[in-house]
Design a protein around this nucleic acid. Structure first.
Lengths: 116, 116
DNA sequence: ATTATATATGAATATATATTCATATGTTCA
DNA sequence: TGAACATATGAATATATATTCATATATAAT
């Protein structure tokens, strides 16, 4: 390989420090779940309070089926869990770790507003 | 509106706490930049050392044009900057804030490995 | 029992976006 | 000056994914 500004040893050392390809793929996939406004909305609402699908639909202004589909994604990524209460499904965040990640998002969001 | 488990006042209070729709859109867009393995790779490498396009291409194993396109995205989102050195373009992270966000990603990545 | 309600899901559609290909621009070196 | 190199970019292609529509299932209410 012909490097421009680094040599082979430096290249190897850099590669050692990074997550391997599969980890990178998994990390990107995990992050991508937060990269959709509908899912972000759902997560932010659930951060405040456990909610049923119908109420999430009204709060976000999205159709019930859209919410159900996104909840399925969030379930598969283990970001949310739910239990049944009669005919309703009550969703909540899976753990506080998720809530912390959302906090970082809110913080960044606030900073953006300040900087523009 | 007909709520299932909350009343109108609770709904209003919840909505007050959340970022408005446009902020949510912007935040999702910002997060999405990190949700791609190629861009993540570029960012992680630049976190270690400023690098030219060619070396980034070799390090990531991606074609030069793919890297250039993604660098353009990262530039537009102001995550990276560059200067010209002869015919080369040397890219680096725009500020330490970005580096901190990547740290969180790495931490999560490590936790995933532990949990599986 | 029949009707209304809450949710889930497969299929279709629309849209976003990552990569490649072809090629242009500018720089270095012989 | 001409050839090789580094980078950027528009267009084409491929692929992922968000939403809607139609509909199924299960529970509650009358």
């Amino acid at each position: 390989m012909e490097w421009c500004r680094i040599d082979q040893d430096t290249a190897n050392a850099l590669k050692e420090k990074l997550p391997v390809e599969e980890e990178m793929q998994d990390l990107a996939e995990f992050i991508r779940v937060f990269g959709d406004p509908t899912r972000l909305g759902i997560l932010f609402y659930l951060r405040e309070k456990p909610l049923c699908v119908h109420d999430l639909s009204l709060l976000t202004g999205m159709q019930q089926t859209a919410i159900s589909h996104q909840l399925k994604v969030l379930r598969q990524m283990r970001l949310v869990r739910y239990y049944k209460e009669g005919r309703m499904a009550i969703y909540s965040l899976n753990d506080s770790h998720i809530s912390q990640i959302l906090d970082i998002g809110l913080k960044h969001s606030a900073e953006e507003v300040r900087n523009d």
